[in-house]
Simulated assay, not measured.
Amino acid sequence: MRNKIAIYILLLLMLLPASAAAEPESVSELLKLYNISGYDPEEEGRKLYLLEEEYRDIAHRVNTNTMLEAAMELYDERRKAILTRIDSDTYELSNRLEDLEHQMKASKEDTVEAIMQLDGEYRSVLRQLKKNQDEREQLLVPKEGVVSTLSLEDAKRERNRLESLSPKLEKQKQTYEQALSCPAIGEISTFRSPLEIPVQMTSPYGERLDPITLDSITFHHGMDLYAPEGTTVLSAFNGVVEEASSTDELGNYVVVNHGCGVKTLYGHLESYHVEVGQEVFQYASIARSGNTGSRTTGPHLHFGVYINGKSVDPGRFVPY
């Protein structure tokens, strides 16, 4: 009696209009159940924002350092040119000063006026030499506004940081775009059943005694659910049918791709009524349960969940 009531409640819930149904949840919410991160649009957007802020900050400093380096190079070129001119003038003035000293020693017999003229020129050359010496010393003192602001080692470190950050930023952009593309697949936290009847698990996910040979421990990559032959099998979430075929072990089976690496498998079916490429919605009828395939000991539904090609425990969201 209780089973019949549960079936009626489940059917009533399935018949509720879309407006009364829970808000569809993203694939990212399912991935969180398996501690798989990287698909939450809000979280990945926040990470992207922080990386972009860091990149802009470093890029600004690198550009500033680049301009300072350019200004420093121009300053050094100008300083070298001025030093060359000063040194050349100083050389000529020193030679002129030496000539004047010889002339002054030899001018004892000259008139006072001639001696005074030589002395005046001598003093003028000395003043010019002193001026050149002062100017040269000033040019050799580091410019406060350029050298103190820019450290070549710091500039090199900033450029290296920018280069290492660039691929990280690109990768995060791709992750964020992937997160945005993760679709809403339906109810996850309030998931009901991949069958038209309430879930009754007959064999859990993980290691178990092989039900066929009964002589070894094998790994069960899914969950077996009680299902009399002909029970309607429902798509666990919104998605697209990726496979609808048959194998020796699984018998008739269907695989639905829900996006972002998440797929569900329905095995040992009596029959399926979907085709590859067909879009299906959560709880839409896709097959009838059965007892096909060599790896079965009785009618049931083998329900598997795969993330990025690896099986995971459906029990994380299937109520049993």
Rank of each mutant, 00 (worst) to 15 (best):
R2W: 05
I5R: 09
I7P: 00
I7G: 00
L12C: 10
L15P: 05
L16Y: 10
S28R: 06
I36G: 12
I36Y: 14
E43I: 09
L50E: 10
H60D: 15
H60Q: 13
R61K: 15
N63I: 04
T66N: 14
T66P: 09
L74E: 13
R78A: 12
R79Y: 00
K80W: 02
A81C: 01
A81K: 11
T84F: 07
S88L: 02
S88E: 07
L93N: 06
R96Y: 02
L97D: 05
L97I: 02
E98G: 00
D99Y: 09
K108P: 02
D110A: 13
V112S: 13
D119A: 09
E121V: 01
R123F: 08
V125M: 00
L126C: 07
R127I: 07
R127S: 12
L129W: 12
K130L: 12
K131Y: 14
N132H: 12
N132L: 01
Q133R: 11
Q133E: 15
E137T: 10
Q138G: 04
L139W: 03
P142I: 03
E144K: 05
V147M: 03
S148K: 06
L152S: 00
R157T: 13
E158C: 04
R159Q: 12
S166C: 02
P167M: 02
K173N: 02
K173R: 13
T175M: 08
L180T: 06
S181L: 04
S181V: 05
P183L: 07
P194Y: 09
L195Q: 06
I212P: 05
D215I: 07
T218G: 01
T218Y: 01
P228A: 08
G230E: 14
L234Y: 15
E242M: 09
A244R: 08
E249L: 01
L250T: 02
V256T: 08
G261E: 11
L269C: 11
S271D: 15
V274P: 12
E275Q: 15
V276M: 11
V276Y: 13
Q278Y: 14
Q282M: 03
I286L: 04
I286V: 11
A287K: 10
N291F: 10
G293K: 04
R295C: 01
F303M: 07
N308W: 08
K310H: 09
P314R: 03
Y320D: 12
